[in-house]
């Protein structure tokens, strides 16, 4: 998962990624023109395979790369490539072995997820939002990046991304987003 480089045209014909501009992701790996760039298909498949988020969720959105491996989800109109400060929101870090969704993406789209979602108790949720790691032996699902969620007024609400390894859930909430609640 997270690596579809083998399916594209030969790497020698591809352009290098220009980290200063936004480039739209190719629909599939076969249409790739930039070396190492993830395809839309791979991104949408990742969200579906890992978290059970239906691919149709993103029908009105396009995906873009700026910087090395940083993927953005955008609902508006723009040509590719484009030099601009931001297009929509960052959603995923690629170009690494384990792809990693962002806190803000999970809060925006994570309600559609039904796999790899770990429900936290109130005190665990507060610790998670404050950026603290917690031992959580009760999880018997996949290791790796999970969506941490808690109950808000009777509905499950995603808080952010946690990394689950060796019985511990590590909060990935970025420093600037952490709050003492």
């Amino acid at each position: 998962m997270g690596n579809d480089a083998s399916n594209g045209v030969s790497e020698g014909d591809l352009e290098q990624n220009d980290g200063q501009q936004f480039g739209r992701l190719p629909a599939t790996a076969a249409e790739r023109t930039v070396e190492g760039r993830a395809s839309r298909e791979a991104v949408v498949d990742y969200f579906a395979d890992r978290f059970g988020i239906a691919p149709e969720t993103f029908d009105d959105h396009t995906f873009w790369e700026k910087g090395a491996g940083k993927i953005w989800v955008y609902g508006g109109s723009a040509p590719s490539p484009v030099e601009i400060e931001a297009l929509g929101m960052t959603c995923l870090r690629t170009r690494q072995e384990h792809w990693k969704p962002t806190t803000d993406f999970v809060q925006r789209f994570g309600r559609e997820a039904d796999e790899c979602v770990i429900e936290l108790e109130p005190d665990e949720a507060r610790a998670f939002a404050a950026g603290e790691d917690r031992d959580l032996e009760r999880w018997d699902g996949d290791w790796g990046y999970l969506i941490a969620a808690h109950d808000v007024a009777g509905e499950l609400e995603p808080i952010g991304v946690g990394l689950y390894v060796h019985g511990e859930l590590r909060s990935m909430v970025p420093k600037g987003r952490q709050r003492e609640l």
Binding site: H61, V73, Y74, G75, G76, A78, I84, E85, A86, L87, G88, M89, D104, Q107, R108
Partner: peptide, 8 residues
């Protein structure tokens, strides 16, 4: 969660 923003 605004995905429709383009920032310049």
């Amino acid at each position: 969660g605004a995905t429709s923003l383009a920032v310049t």
